[in-house]
């Protein structure tokens, strides 16, 4: 067991966004979290990444409770999250954006020796990282845009840049918040290829999506949320046939707005 979520709950001023959710993530798997809009998926993911403090419950990473840790500490342990609405440094170039994301890799490989950089030592490590950044950007179909300002990218490109940045953090568990939303067909195909490659390289993936079709292609196991509660868990096909899940999706769609 890589990560265990136990009894996780989040209330915002009386509104319960996530209610007593428990599940586990096994090493090396691709798991999905589905649910209609507003079912608490993003809140759940944010708590796992330390961006929100839970009202109750625990997140255990390899047996250690991490829900009280700062997001940068959690990222340093290897849990990295991407955002549904892409977050980039708009005033930096695409390349520099990804270079910022090499922070953890550089810290891991060189530790306090990084201080040598201030007097001009250890530039080789920087060059290696720059090479890896170029690779990651090429993998995410951004090889032609490295010198552009990130603020000038299209929505889909920004999203892929967000993924490239997350990859530069060398995650052991990658949390993806609706990675496919807002992408075109070709972009989705590329996304699937990238994720497959990352998975093959040893990363565990946890993907939130409300478009079920995308998850069905790559996830082995999904959990379904509705109104902040876990209503089903299992292989994608089984969960999608679960009456509670069908009702959560269809019932919501048919209910008057």
């Amino acid at each position: 067991m890589l990560l265990e979520v136990r009894g996780l709950t989040k209330r915002f001023m009386g509104l319960t966004a996530v209610s007593d959710v428990s599940f586990t993530v096994e090493p090396g798997e691709i798991m999905g979290i589905i649910g209609p809009n507003g079912s608490g998926k993003t809140t759940l993911l944010s708590m796992m990444a330390g961006l929100l403090a839970p009202t109750a419950g625990a997140v255990r990473w390899q047996g250690e409770e991490i829900q009280h840790l700062r997001p940068d500490v959690i990222a340093a342990r290897g849990i990295v999250k991407t955002f549904q609405n892409p977050q980039v440094f708009a005033e930096l170039t695409v390349f520099d954006n990804a270079m910022v994301a090499t922070h953890l890799a550089l810290k891991r490989s060189r530790g306090a020796r990084r201080l040598g950089e201030l007097v001009g030592l250890g530039r080789a490590a920087e060059r290696t990282l720059a090479g890896q950044v170029a690779e990651a950007l090429a993998l995410c179909n951004l090889g032609g845009a490295t010198r552009q300002l990130a603020g000038n990218l299209s929505y889909g490109e920004e999203k892929m840049l967000g993924l490239a940045m997350a990859l530069m953090c060398r995650p052991r568990l990658l949390l993806l918040d609706e990675p496919a939303s807002g992408l075109g067909r070709e972009e989705i195909d590329n996304l699937v290829a990238v994720l497959t490659k990352v998975h093959a390289a040893g990363a565990t993936l946890c993907i939130v999506d409300h478009k079920v079709g995308f998850l069905r292609g790559i996830a082995r196991r999904v959990i379904a949320l509705d109104h902040g509660e876990k209503i089903a868990e299992g292989p994608p096909e089984a969960v999608l046939e679960n009456p509670a899940v069908i009702e959560a999706y269809l019932g919501r769609a048919h209910a008057p707005a």
Binding site: D72, A75, V80, Q87, V100, C169
Partner: peptide
Amino acid sequence: LNEDLARTLGI
């Protein structure tokens, strides 16, 4: 430029 993003990247 973006403190929250910096944090999620491990800074």
